[in-house]
C-alpha cells in the first residue's frame, strides 16, 4: 500500500480557559482517497480534531503530517499557503449572507490571487468561469447572482461545497455538514461530498452525528469519546456493544433514511 496521506500523531488539545482537555493523545492515519467519518457525542472533540488539521485551532501537543509535510511545524505564512489544499465545509455553512452566491464561491480562490486585487473584489476571468462550472456541478448555476441568505439550508451548504471545490483541494474537512439540514436534504448534500471523493479523488474527513449516515458514506469510521479515540475500523465492525461504548449506555440508534 502507498504511504498514508494524513498522519495524526499523539494529538492533544487543552483549552487554556477552564483547562478543558478536548483531545487526548489521538493518533490515526488516513490513506489517499479514503472517506473517513468521525463519530461521537457533542463535545467529544470532533470539531476540535478537524480544526487542528488545518490549524484553525493550534494543537497543544502532537504532530500532523499531510502528504509528507509536517503542518504542525509550518509558519503562519506557510500554513496559509498550505490551507489552499484543504477545503472545509461547516455545520452552519458560514457564508457571507449579504453577498451573492458568486462572491461566496469566489472566496475559495482568495489564497490563489494577489491580495490587493481581491480587496477590490477583482478575480481573474478563469476563476469566474471555474466558479460557474462549480455552481453548475452543485446544481445552483441559476442562483449565481442571488444573495446567499435567500437560499434554503441545503442550497447554502451546496454553495459551501462549491466554495471548497474552488480551492481544488486534495483534502476536504466537513464539520457536521448535514446536522442543520432535514433528512432528505442531508442525503443530497452527502452525495455531492461523495462525488468529490469518488470523482475528484479528494480525501474526505467528515464528522457526522448519525451512525446510519456514517455507515452509508464512510469507507472507515473513527469514534471519539471525551477526546479519546475509542474506535478505528470498518463501518460494519460497529455492533450494538461498540455503539453503546461510543455513545453511552442509554443511547438508542436512530435511523436516518
Amino acid at each position: 500500500m502507498a504511504e498514508p496521506y494524513l498522519v495524526v500523531e499523539h494529538l492533544t488539545k487543552v483549552y487554556e480557559r477552564g483547562h478543558v482537555v478536548a483531545l487526548k493523545d489521538v493518533s490515526f492515519e488516513v490513506r489517499k482517497g479514503e472517506f473517513l467519518v468521525i463519530i461521537g457525542l457533542s463535545g467529544s472533540g470532533k470539531s476540535t480534531l478537524l480544526r487542528c488539521i488545518n490549524r484553525l485551532i493550534e494543537p497543544t501537543k502532537g504532530r500532523i503530517f499531510i502528504d509528507g509535510v509536517e503542518i504542525t511545524k509550518l509558519s503562519p505564512r506557510q500554513m496559509r499557503k498550505f490551507r489552499r489544499r484543504i477545503g472545509m465545509i461547516f455545520q452552519h455553512f458560514n457564508l457571507i449572507k449579504r453577498a451573492t452566491v458568486m462572491t461566496n464561491v469566489l472566496t475559495g480562490r482568495l489564497g490563489y490571487n494577489p491580495t490587493w486585487k481581491t480587496l477590490l473584489g477583482i478575480f481573474p476571468r478563469s476563476d469566474r468561469e471555474l466558479a460557474l462550472r462549480n455552481l453548475e456541478r452543485v446544481g445552483l448555476l441559476e442562483k449565481a447572482y442571488v444573495r446567499a441568505d435567500e437560499l434554503s439550508g441545503g442550497q447554502q451548504q451546496r454553495v459551501g461545497i462549491a466554495r471548497a471545490l474552488m480551492q481544488e483541494p486534495e483534502l476536504l474537512l466537513a464539520d457536521e455538514p448535514v446536522s442543520a439540514l432535514d433528512p432528505a436534504t442531508s442525503h443530497s448534500v452527502m452525495q455531492y461530498i461523495e462525488q468529490m471523493n469518488q470523482e475528484d479523488g479528494v480525501t474526505v474527513l467528515a464528522s457526522l452525528h448519525f451512525l446510519s449516515l456514517a455507515r452509508r458514506y464512510g469507507t472507515r469510521i473513527i469514534a471519539l469519546k471525551d477526546g479519546e479515540l475509542v474506535f478505528d475500523g470498518a463501518p460494519e465492525e460497529i455492533d450494538d456493544r461498540k455503539f453503546k461504548e461510543i455513545y453511552g449506555e442509554e443511547a438508542e440508534e436512530v435511523e436516518i433514511r
Binding site: 488545518n54 496559509r80 489552499r84 461547516f90 452552519h92 482568495l110 481581491t118 459551501g160 466554495r163
Partner: peptide, 11 residues
C-alpha cells in the same frame, strides 16, 4: 464562523 471559513480557504 465566517472568519473561520474564509481563513480556511488560505486567505
Amino acid at each position: 464562523g465566517l472568519i473561520e471559513a474564509i481563513t480556511a480557504t488560505g486567505a
